[in-house]
């Protein structure tokens, strides 16, 4: 039996802000965000690492926050969907999801967007097939898969255009 009343200090940076809180060690990063910090943009779809709804960035890499105990990543930089837009400006990926109707109920959407942002960094975006493969950890029961791919490709095309513009 784990004693849920024993707490440990947890120190993180979340969306650029320092966060220090005492929590039981059994609290997942996902539950910390949703239940203790009121950052409910990160979703719970399974709590078992099987659906991707809880995807956030930890030190720039995508992770399933339901599989991480919050106390186990001291001083990590966590980015959630709430931290993706800057100064009221949507991230290009968020805009692309809107443009391409890349969601319906919107529940898997924050996870899909965080995953897609990380995917771009990872560079697994050469073909539609490759994107499909590397996005397959994020389930969408509404079946918005085509739109999600279109959104990612919209951002890729924008980036290429921007680069071409810079080169010119």
């Amino acid at each position: 039996m784990t004693d849920v009343s024993v707490t440990s200090p947890c120190r993180l940076r979340i969306n650029g802000e320092p966060c220090t809180i005492d929590i039981p060690p059994s609290v997942t990063l996902l539950d910390l965000l949703r239940e203790r910090l009121d950052l409910t943009g990160t979703k719970k779809g399974c709590d078992h690492g099987q659906c991707g709804a809880c995807t956030v960035l930890v030190n720039g890499k995508r992770v399933k926050s339901c599989l991480i105990l919050a106390v186990s990543i001291p001083d990590a930089e966590v980015t959630t969907i709430e931290g993706l837009s800057r100064d009221g400006q949507m991230h290009p990926m968020q805009q692309a999801f809107l443009d391409q109707d890349a969601f319906q109920c919107g529940y898997c959407t924050p996870g899909q967007i965080m995953s897609a942002v990380a995917l771009m960094e990872e560079g697994h975006v050469h073909t539609r097939e490759e994107i499909r493969e590397f996005m397959s950890g994020n389930l969408c029961r509404c079946g918005a898969y085509n739109g999600i791919l279109d959104a990612i490709e919209q951002v890729i095309a924008q980036q290429q255009q921007d680069r071409a513009g810079e080169a010119a």
């Binding site: 949703r34 239940e35 009121d38 950052l39 409910t40 943009g41 990160t42 979703k43 719970k44 959630t80 969907i81 709430e82 993706l84 837009s85 949507m90 968020q94 805009q95 999801f97 809107l98 443009d99 109707d101 969601f103 919107g106 529940y107 959407t109 924050p110 967007i113």
Partner: peptide, 20 residues
């Protein structure tokens, strides 16, 4: 485009388990 889209892509839309 969906008028509820902004709330959904920014994580602002609150679902049943999310008021506190």
């Amino acid at each position: 485009s969906r008028i509820d889209g902004l709330a959904k892509v920014t994580g602002q839309a609150r679902y049943a388990a999310e008021p506190h």
